[in-house]
Simulated assay, not measured.
Amino acid sequence: MARGVESRPGKRRCPARLQPVDARLSAQLQNKRVRVEGEVVRPGEYVLPADSSLADALRAAGGLTPLAYLFGTEFTRESVRVTQQENYERALRDLEVEFAKAAYTRKALTADEAAAQAASGTGSSVLIQRLREVRPTGRIVLQLDPAAPQLPALALEDGDRIYVPARPNSVGVFGSVFNGGSYLFGQGRTIDDFLKLAGGPTRGADAESVFVLRANGSVVSARQDGGWFGGGSLANLAAQPGDTVFVPEEVGKTSWVQNAKEWTQILAQFGLGAAAIKTLK
Rank of each mutant, 00 (worst) to 15 (best):
Y104K: 06
S124D: 15
L144F: 09
Q117P: 00
G138K: 00
D145E: 10
A103K: 15
D112T: 14
A100S: 15
A148W: 07
T105I: 14
L127P: 06
T105C: 09
A147L: 12
A155M: 07
R130I: 11
Q143H: 12
Q129V: 03
T137E: 00
A155F: 03
E133M: 12
L127K: 08
T105D: 11
S125C: 05
A111Y: 10
Q143E: 12
R132P: 06
A147Q: 14
T110P: 07
Q143F: 08
D112R: 11
A103W: 06
A147K: 14
Q150N: 13
Y104Q: 15
P152W: 03
R106N: 02
D158R: 05
K107G: 01
R161F: 01
E133H: 01
Q150D: 14
G123N: 09
S120M: 10
S120W: 09
L156V: 02
V126I: 14
Q143R: 14
R106E: 05
S124K: 11
I128V: 13
A108E: 12
D112S: 13
A111C: 10
P149S: 12
P149Y: 10
D160M: 00
L154G: 01
D160P: 00
L127A: 09
I128Q: 00
A119G: 11
V134S: 02
P149M: 03
T105S: 09
R139L: 03
L127E: 03
D158F: 04
V134K: 02
L127I: 08
A153S: 10
F99R: 10
Q150T: 15
R106F: 12
A114S: 15
I128A: 08
A102G: 09
K107L: 11
A111E: 15
A102W: 05
L131S: 05
L131D: 03
A115V: 05
L109F: 08
D112V: 10
G159P: 03
G159D: 02
K107D: 04
A147D: 12
K101Q: 15
I140G: 02
A102P: 02
R135F: 05
